[in-house]
Nucleic acid binder design. Structure first.
Lengths: 230, 230
DNA sequence: ATCTTGCCATAGCAACGTTATATATCAATG
DNA sequence: CATTGATATATAACGTTGCTATGGCAAGAT
């Protein structure tokens, strides 16, 4: 009928599905709702994808791409630990502000053989940031991938507790801060230096994202999702 | 028709629902399947509960009770850090062996005003274990609840990565081990003492659970669920 | 000009959670 | 003992879900 986008129904499906999941949660993503929003029929889903799960996989993949870009935008300075902290905060807040996306990508992903490559791309930003800390002498030599993995899992634990409602966002920020410093110290950084660098990275993060005073009651949705797809 | 249990249809519903979720995942818990297994009609759900979500809340509550008992069974020795490690391992393996229960209780719980009291009971075991470490001089003075919370979130982060398929169970065990030691060291324990105590607690855990060689490919389900309800 | 191919709308199916209605069972009461 | 009231259950149905079968339409190829 309306034929909203002659070329790119597939992209419209991914984009609309991502928006529905991000803004209203996974339950809002139904075949008929999706078709209605895109301006087509439910059949479009099955001509362009194998089904709802397949579409969700595409949404997750798209989200990993945006996350990679988002994390890669964090600038590198002379303080690699502050940079690492900034990457950590960028990840943390993107998860808080898009908790539904966080859940379908990290917490309860569908089985997907091809996810490793795209998740690795975003994860690689973190690994590189850790590697820089080692290269520049802040951390004692060690496996950057394993260290990045531990940082990532630690942050996810805090994020799960936060998004599941066990702790507030403010408490999550504090614990994330302390636990990350604990790990960095274990990796060899001087406790005081880690403290200063983490405070630096946190300040940078707060300065960059215009106005997220840590007391935001409800997370702002669509922060990253609002950016146009590649 | 069959009238399997004259008194206790409500308990049968909880038990059967718990079994279905634990053994086959949340998708296996449907009204008709549940009614079929219990030997009644779908109406039983709505006479004894307000609906499926309400039943799931009861299942989660029952699970918290069993988890409390399970953790409280960990014996206390002269080494409080080894005891804490043993509690951590008990929690870790109960989550791995009953990952569906872990998810509906910790990762994606339903909104429930009364959950705090029952979750707190299980969480209290961990807090007390941390408090003992402080009381006996292994950790510097500090908030035991906050420290227990950090240990809990850290473990959940590893468990989520494990149950979501990002890392293997064996890797999860190693990372859990290292990250917990990192936190304990930050809390003031001597790194070498922490290492020894954690090895001790881990050995105790492996000795107690008859035969879970860390290379178990598929988690053994129904470990805790198999215990009869109180 | 006909055939083929790909995309989409309509309609429908099985299964889901939930509800309405009617029947059965049992305690209490006259 | 008979009757009433309440509770629990079985049957059937409703609205919605993901998904599929079918038919038609438009464009490219021969």
């Amino acid at each position: 009928m309306s034929r909203t986008a002659d070329a790119g129904v597939r992209l419209a499906l991914i984009e609309t599905a991502a928006r529905l999941v991000a803004q209203e949660g996974p339950d809002a993503l139904t075949t008929r709702r999706l078709a209605s929003e895109v301006g087509t029929s439910t059949m479009a889903l099955y001509t362009h994808f194998e089904g709802m799960d397949d579409l969700l996989r595409a949404v997750r993949l798209e989200w990993f791409n945006r996350l990679s870009n988002h994390l890669a935008e964090v600038p590198q300075t002379a303080d690699p630990v502050a940079d690492l902290a900034a990457v950590g905060w960028a990840y943390f807040f993107s998860a808080v502000e898009n908790e539904h996306m966080f859940r379908i990508t990290v917490v309860e992903p569908l089985p997907d053989p091809g996810v490793a490559t795209h998740a690795t791309e975003a994860f690689g930003v973190l690994v590189n940031s850790v590697q820089r800390c080692t290269d520049e002498g802040r951390l004692r030599p060690g496996d950057a991938t394993a260290r990045a993995l531990q940082i990532w899992m630690m942050g996810n634990g805090v994020l799960v507790a936060c998004t599941a409602g066990f702790i507030t966002v403010d408490d999550a920020i504090d614990h994330f801060y302390e636990m990350a410093r604990s790990l960095l110290t274990t990796f060899g950084d001087d406790p005081e230096s880690a403290k200063k660098s983490f405070a630096r990275g946190r300040r940078r993060m707060e300065r960059q994202t215009k106005s997220p005073p840590p007391g935001t009651p409800s997370p702002r949705l669509g922060h990253i999702v609002a950016t146009p797809p590649a």
